[in-house]
C-alpha cells in the first residue's frame, strides 16, 4: 500500500517569496516616500533640514529600491532559464512550475520598476511643500 509522505516545504527558487520581492520593495518605497514627505510638510517647523534634503533622501531610497528590483529581476531571469524557454509554462511538472514562477517574477519586477519611477517622479519637480 502506498503512503503519501508530506513533501518538504519548498525553498530556494521554488519559494513564493521571490515572486513577492519586487512588489514588496515597491510598497516599501511608496510608504517611505509618501510618509516622509507628509510628516515633513505637516511638522515642517520641527525639522532643521530643508525640503531639498528630503528630495535627495527620496532619490537615494529610489536608487536602492531600483537596484533591489533589478537584482530580483536578474534572479527571475536566471530562474526562467535566461529566456531560453517560451511560455506558456502550463505543464504540471516541476520544471514548468519553476519556469512559470521565474517568468511571473520577471514581469512583476518590470511593473514594480516602472511604479517606483512614477512614485519618485514628483520630487524631481516639487521644490517645496506647497509648490
Amino acid at each position: 500500500m502506498r503512503t503519501l509522505l508530506p513533501r518538504p516545504r519548498p525553498s530556494g527558487p521554488e519559494s513564493l517569496w521571490t515572486l513577492f520581492t519586487a512588489p514588496i520593495v515597491w510598497a516599501a518605497h511608496f510608504l517611505i516616500c509618501y510618509l516622509s514627505v507628509a510628516v515633513y510638510c505637516a511638522k515642517q517647523e520641527r525639522f532643521s533640514i530643508g525640503f531639498d534634503v528630503l528630495r535627495v533622501a527620496v532619490g537615494i531610497a529610489t536608487a536602492f529600491a531600483l537596484v533591489a528590483i533589478l537584482v530580483s529581476a536578474w534572479l527571475a531571469w536566471r530562474q526562467w532559464g535566461f529566456g531560453a524557454h517560451d511560455p506558456p509554462h502550463d505543464e504540471p511538472t516541476q520544471h514548468d512550475r519553476t519556469l512559470f514562477q521565474g517568468f511571473a517574477t520577471l514581469l512583476l519586477s518590470g511593473l514594480s520598476f516602472i511604479a517606483v519611477v512614477f512614485v519618485a517622479l514628483p520630487v524631481l519637480f516639487m521644490t517645496e511643500c506647497l509648490r
Binding site: 518590470g110 512614477f118 517622479l121 514628483p122 524631481l124 516639487m126 521644490t127 506647497l130 509648490r131
Partner: peptide, 26 residues
C-alpha cells in the same frame, strides 16, 4: 503594449508634474 504605454504615461506624467510648480508660483 507595455513599452509604448509606459513611455506615453511617463511622458504625460512628466509634463503634468513639470507644469505644477508654475501653477502655484511664489
Amino acid at each position: 503594449g507595455p513599452v509604448f504605454s509606459s513611455t506615453v504615461l511617463f511622458g504625460l506624467l512628466t509634463y503634468a508634474l513639470w507644469l505644477m510648480p508654475g501653477l502655484r508660483p511664489a
